[in-house]
């Protein structure tokens, strides 16, 4: 009986794993096939990898597109980390009568869908003359409520006595934050960094609205525009996807251990 349950569980897990991994594998094999092979249902690796790559670099100004993506993702991630962790640190460390009410108000804002803020945001950036700029892409995400929440929760595990010890060692508040808090909380930062990098890298809707010229477009928008052609070349789209996915995978594997530590919480 137990064996049967175990077998069924195994089968369920394999199915779930297959469903998760299959699209990914298909993307990779698709990148090596022609559009006809793919629509014909071929899943095995083909021989069209190099022509697909050549076509991608012919159609897309890859240098500019990847620069845009990296610039937006890295700057956005860095700024969000600084601003949100400072806010989370402040909310947790400095006791006040109103902080929990302010915080609850912030959390309430999480329930407002982006779609509801899209148009007001666009009007704001448009009247500030910032449409089609890096600032417009990066700025709205910097004060991330979720990240403030995440950092506040994790700051609860930051030993307050470390702050006391640092004060006695002569550190000012910003120095405590910089020299003690950030290094001690590095796992928390690593996990946040992966999430933010992926969010920024994959951002689609807001950049689509706020960007107008091809030279500002990110890789995500470029892939989408390839897919909306009159006769989509799936081989081309797949290789573009592979190239678009590589950086996030790389970041994840580099920070994987810290990511797990950070998600589990706790000061290491």
């Amino acid at each position: 009986m137990n064996r049967l349950i175990s077998l069924l569980a195994q089968a369920g897990l394999w199915l779930a794993a297959f469903i998760s991994v299959f699209p990914f594998l298909w993307m990779i094999t698709g990148a090596t096939n022609t559009a006809n092979d793919i629509t014909g249902g071929r899943f095995l690796p083909g021989t069209n990898l190099l022509p697909n790559i050549a076509k991608f670099f012919e159609l897309v100004d890859a240098g500019q597109v990847f620069f845009n993506s990296f610039f937006v993702a890295i700057t956005g991630t860095a700024l969000t980390l600084i601003v949100s962790s400072l806010a989370g640190y402040g909310f947790e460390i400095f006791a006040s009568k109103t902080r929990d009410r302010v915080f609850a108000g912030l959390l309430l804002l999480l329930s407002v869908p982006f779609a509801a803020m899209m148009i007001p945001l666009f009007v704001m950036f448009s009247s500030a003359g910032l449409i089609n700029s890096y600032i417009a892409m990066i700025a709205p995400g910097i004060a991330s409520i979720f990240m403030i929440f995440y950092f506040r929760q994790n700051t609860k595990s930051f030993p307050h006595e470390l702050r006391d010890a640092a004060k006695l060692d002569g550190l000012k508040e910003w120095q405590i934050f910089w020299f003690i808090y950030i290094p001690v909380m590095r796992s928390t930062y690593a996990a946040a960094m992966i999430i933010l990098f992926m969010t920024n890298w994959n951002a689609y809707l807001w950049p689509l609205i706020v960007l107008q010229t091809n030279d500002m477009k990110t890789i995500t928008l470029t892939v989408a525009s390839l897919a909306t052609a009159y006769t989509p070349d799936y081989g081309l789209i797949m290789i573009a996807n592979v190239l678009a996915t590589l950086p996030t995978i790389l970041v994840f594997f580099l920070l994987q251990r810290r990511f797990v530590e950070g998600m589990l919480g706790g000061v290491k």
Binding site: E161, L162, A165, L168, G170, I180, P183, V184
Partner: peptide, 20 residues
Amino acid sequence: VDAAHRGIAMVFQSYALYPH
């Protein structure tokens, strides 16, 4: 006077050593 300038040093219950 600021804690750092009182001429004192403190040993904490949890030791409060900088873990990094």
